[in-house]
Design a protein around this nucleic acid. Structure first.
Length: 114
DNA sequence: TTGCTGACCGACG
DNA sequence: CCGTCGGCCAGCA
């Protein structure tokens, strides 16, 4: 049982890892799922540290509210995020996900508060 | 301890 | 439509 007492970041990582391939989630949804609705920034910041985590985190499945690949610039390669998304069947055009609303994966609908 | 930053979001003009 | 500002909170010098 994951001790929810862990750092705020690990909670974000765990949620992101639960995101199935071909689906994407947003900072706002994660933030709200964690209870920090107004702190979507923290979610994004957590992703910044995601590379420091031992466990791989599919940060490429996390995009902003507009479905725009805002954090792609922070990946190993700026185009890596788009490549990964395309590899999962997600169509990306100009750093924006097509049919974004249809690919959104809301943690609150699939995951229950640990 | 204070202050700054940050892969966001929503509101306002 | 587009630019700007505030808020929110955790980590770091």
């Amino acid at each position: 049982m994951q001790t929810s007492e862990k750092s705020f970041f690990e909670r974000v990582y765990q949620v992101v890892r639960q995101v199935p391939p071909g689906k994407v989630t947003t900072y706002g949804h994660i933030a709200r799922f964690l209870g920090t609705t107004g702190s979507a920034r923290m979610v994004g910041w957590a992703m910044n540290q995601s590379h420091s985590q031992k466990v791989p985190v599919p940060a490429h499945r996390v995009v902003n509210r507009n479905g725009l690949l805002t954090g792609k610039n922070h990946f190993q390669h700026a185009d890596l995020m788009e490549e990964l998304l395309k590899s999962e069947g997600i169509e990306v055009k100009d750093d924006q996900i097509k049919d974004f609303e249809r690919k959104v994966w809301d943690p609150a609908e699939h995951l229950k508060r640990s």
